[in-house]
């Protein structure tokens, strides 16, 4: 993994990019949100606080998905009516990046995927069934979430969001997709739900008494 080093424009602390395509990161010293430009790093905001979230994953956590090793290098924290969740930005040893979501310790791995044909005209409500290239997905949840915090490296700029609408779709064989309406046009993430054991995670967070 290629690493590029520079310094935080706010506090001068060393900033390391572990993934060449990262566009944004946070300063681990002063929590400034930093965006990489062609020549420099620019401070665009600040993370006020991180929620007391229960995820056992942290930046540097390693795991395996579909026989490929990955490491978590960043995350977006969301909050909604029924709790919060993390989208961990993971990069594989092949250079690809994906998202490992942890919603109340229920895990799923997804990747940004182009919308299948005919998808854009459908209104997605709970119970709506959509045909994605021959696989039938059913909308199970529509979530109106709020952006809560970002940490570490992300593949795009993400720091000034407020309300984000997500639609989750599932299949009988554990396939999973999320439509993220916070972007224009919306983004589609496709993957599957996974168990903690399947991911073979290492370098996890510590829990008092566990």
């Amino acid at each position: 993994m290629s690493q590029t080093n520079s310094n935080c424009p706010n506090c001068g602390g060393p900033i390391v990019f572990r993934w060449a395509q990262s566009v944004q990161t946070t300063c681990p010293y002063c929590s400034s949100i930093l965006v990489r430009t062609d020549v420099d790093i620019e401070k665009v905001g600040e993370v006020s606080s991180y929620p007391a979230d229960p995820s056992p994953i942290m930046i540097g956590t390693e795991g395996i998905f579909e026989n490929k090793a990955f490491v978590a290098i960043g995350r977006i924290c969301y909050k909604y009516e029924n709790g919060g969740w993390n989208e961990w930005h993971i990069v594989f040893n092949t250079g690809e990046s994906a998202w490992l979501s942890d919603a109340q310790l229920q895990y799923a791995v997804t990747k940004v995927t182009p919308f299948p044909p005919g998808f854009d005209n459908i209104t997605l409500n709970v119970g709506t069934v959509v045909d994605a290239n021959g696989v039938f997905y059913t909308v199970t949840t529509v979530t109106n979430a709020r952006y809560r915090a970002v940490e570490g490296e992300l593949p795009f700029q993400f720091w000034d969001k407020t309300d984000c609408r997500f639609v989750d779709l599932r299949t009988p064989d554990a396939r999973f997709m999320t439509v993220d309406f916070s972007e224009k046009p919306p983004l589609l993430f496709v993957g599957k739900t996974v168990t903690f054991d399947e991911l073979k995670l290492k370098n996890l967070r510590q829990f008092e008494g566990w």
Binding site: P56, L105, P172, T193, W210
Partner: peptide
Amino acid sequence: YNPFHGFRYLTEYTGHWNDIVAVLSLPA
């Protein structure tokens, strides 16, 4: 509760126990 594996539930009705986990795929 387990901080890594998440949640599961036990129910008991008149001496009958069940071990319950969330289903993430969708029953058809």
